[in-house]
């Protein structure tokens, strides 16, 4: 495996910082729960990218960081699934509370 130039690694680290900032910005500014969830996931990708870019400093990349990120990916999707279910449940309980006044609210 050819080793990656130091400049590329710095580039990826900067992009990782940019992704975290972008996700944080979206999280603070957006109102739609699904978009907020996407923002959190983008922040997560930024974190993973930092770890993998650091792992690439050695020539065979550091397997410990790779293993941590594989674990992180699975945890991220289970958290996303749980958060989506929470969003739906919150939405439904709000609907149930307001069902007396407005019945047909779906799209």
């Amino acid at each position: 495996m050819s080793s990656l130039a130091a400049n590329s690694i710095i580039l990826y680290l900067l992009v990782a910082v940019a992704l975290v900032m972008l996700g944080l910005y979206g999280l603070l500014v957006l109102k739609d729960p699904i978009r907020r969830l996407i923002a959190i996931n983008i922040m997560g990708s930024g974190t993973f990218l930092t770890m993998i870019a650091f792992a690439r400093r050695q020539d065979p990349p550091d397997p410990i960081l790779h293993a941590l990120v594989v674990t992180g990916l699975v945890v991220a999707i289970s958290a996303t699934a749980f958060a989506l279910r929470l969003i739906l449940a919150a939405r439904e309980s709000r609907e149930a509370a307001a069902s007396g006044s407005t019945e047909a609210e779906d799209e």
């Binding site: 993973f48 594989v70 989506l84």
Partner: peptide
Amino acid sequence: LGAPDLALAEAAIGAGLTGVLL
């Protein structure tokens, strides 16, 4: 970045399953 394990997992989880979920 030389992480084929992650590329495989991300393609299946990040691109596939998350999309269906959302």
